[in-house]
Design a protein around this nucleic acid. Structure first.
Length: 431
RNA sequence: GGUGGGGUUCCCGAGUGGCCAAAGGGAUCAGACUGUAAAUCUGACGCGCAAGCUUCGGUGGUUCGAAUCCACCUCCCACCA
């Protein structure tokens, strides 16, 4: 892909929120491979969907011949970015941040190619901040920032102006640290561009300013839009919380299901944001779906692309197998092997307790993680929305767990497929 | 340090002695309708199958009875110094 068409493609996908002078940027990219960076702060032991867009953006640049630097914020993660946050964040211990940094590193490596001499670079800002002493920091770096400008930034404005909140000096300093990153990466690797979410604009321009002052270098910035949902709720959340990229935290099956359930109003936008499918193909798909009666194909395409990308083709196959078995409506088609396979493929499964005479169904299903409170199970029972091996259960069976989970009732002497509502499935097995 | 305002169930936000497990909205869950979509309608929404149990920043107190009154403590905010 030529330089020009990369930016054009990004714009066509709606992936550009803001950028520094477009002409200069395009020209800069035309002159040869650009080294660019994006930072990821370790705020948990895994990246989640919110990180995916910038991460894939690095990949888009790499695919177009540029050289990405993935920066893990081992130092900035210790401070906490106040940008557009309405509350001061709780500090995490150094050991935890260190550990999380390692987690992020290995995840990032799955998306970007770090091999070879021209390969991407993995950096950690802890390496150049940890040893800076206070006086050097204040004299050599701090001197280039005016508090007036720092306060004026939109990203901290509300924290400073708003009642009921404050901004600690610690977090206020964050923008200086991030700016310092850019200046360092510019010195060390010739990095001339920073990308990030639109909330990072203030931090990015801060880095551009610092790099110009200290290194005398001209650099560029580009931000990505915040991913929004048509219904106004936050993108990337499910009832269980964030959708993680770590298969141990969000199973490939759950991940696949997440995308499959994307509302029509969002799905084509998401295809452009998250997949590498050409925009023209996506538009063609949208047109085809419009012509079609009933269910669109887009969600399926999106779910397959994303699951394959994040978890690999095998995990995708597993997710599809489970989906096929659970949503095709007929469980009798499943063989004993299929049940074992479902469990292996990541369908949540729990052993049936040996002593369940007195256990109500509510407790049983809550313990298995199917619902967060007995009330929810009770509600479902009252509406006959709990289905055990194709048999709907009502409230009157709540105390009949021993009967329902007897060896005679089990499929192949061992399995029970329990459905709560339309979408929640759980496998129980006798031991 | 002084003065004033405030801390209510996941979030916002009512409630100023019994009718309060606590209005209303949002989020969430389930049902109907659909396409595992949206919109709409219905129900649930502190915990418990239930009897019942535990909440309104904390601790004590007044009272037959407190989220509501009193004391002290604590945290937040505004203004003043």
């Amino acid at each position: 892909m030529s330089v020009n068409s990369l930016i054009d493609d990004l714009k066509a996908r709606g992936l550009v929120a803001q950028m520094t002078n477009e002409e200069e940027l395009v020209e800069h990219m035309a002159q040869g491979p650009v080294t660019l960076y994006c930072g990821f702060d370790p705020t948990a032991d895994s990246l989640h969907l919110g990180h995916l867009v910038p991460l894939l953006m690095l990949k888009r640049f790499q695919d177009a011949g540029h050289r990405p630097i993935a920066l893990v914020g081992g130092a900035t993660g210790l401070i906490g970015d106040p940008s557009f946050k309405d509350q001061e964040r709780q500090l995490n211990s150094a050991g935890v941040v260190q550990q999380w940094s390692e987690c992020l590193k290995s995840q990032i490596s799955r998306f970007i190619d770090f091999s070879g001499e021209d390969g991407a670079i993995l950096a950690n800002n802890y390496d150049w901040t940890a040893s800076v002493d206070v006086l050097s920091f204040l004299r050599d770096i701090g001197k280039h920032f005016t508090v007036n400008k720092m306060i004026a930034k939109e990203s901290v404005k509300q924290r400073i102006e708003r009642e009921g909140s404050g901004l600690s000096f610690t977090e206020f300093t964050y923008q200086i640290l991030q700016s310092y990153d850019f200046q360092q990466l510019n010195s060390q690797y010739g990095c001339t561009m920073q990308i990030g979410g639109s909330d990072q604009w203030g931090n990015i321009t801060g880095g551009i300013d610092l790099t110009r002052r200290v290194n005398g270098a001209s650099t560029h910035g580009l931000t990505l839009p915040l991913i929004t949902k048509s219904d106004g709720t936050k993108f990337g959340k499910t009832e269980g919380g964030a959708v993680w990229l770590d298969a141990a935290k969000t199973s490939p099956y759950a991940f696949y299901q997440f995308w499959l359930q994307t509302p029509d109003a969002d799905v084509y936008r998401f295809l452009k944001f998250f997949t590498f499918l050409p925009v023209t193909d996506i538009e063609a798909l949208e047109e085809a779906d419009r012509q079609r009666e009933g269910r669109p194909q887009a969600q399926q395409v999106l779910a397959e692309e994303m699951t394959a990308l994040v978890h690999g083709v095998e995990a995708l196959e597993a997710a599809r197998r489970i989906t096929e078995a659970l949503f095709s409506g007929d469980l009798s088609m499943l063989s004993a092997d299929d049940y074992a396979q479902l469990q292996q493929d990541g369908l949540p499964a729990t052993a049936v307790p040996t002593e369940l005479a007195d256990l109500p169904l509510t407790t049983l299903l809550v313990d298995a993680g199917m619902a967060s409170s007995g009330k929810q199970v009770k509600d479902a029972l009252q509406r006959n929305a709990v289905i055990i091996n194709d048999t709907a259960c009502g409230m009157e069976q709540n105390m009949a767990a021993a009967e329902l989970f007897s060896a005679e009732a089990a499929r192949f002497g061992s399995y029970f497929l329990v459905k709560l509502g339309k979408k929640k499935h759980h496998l129980f097995y006798l031991v």
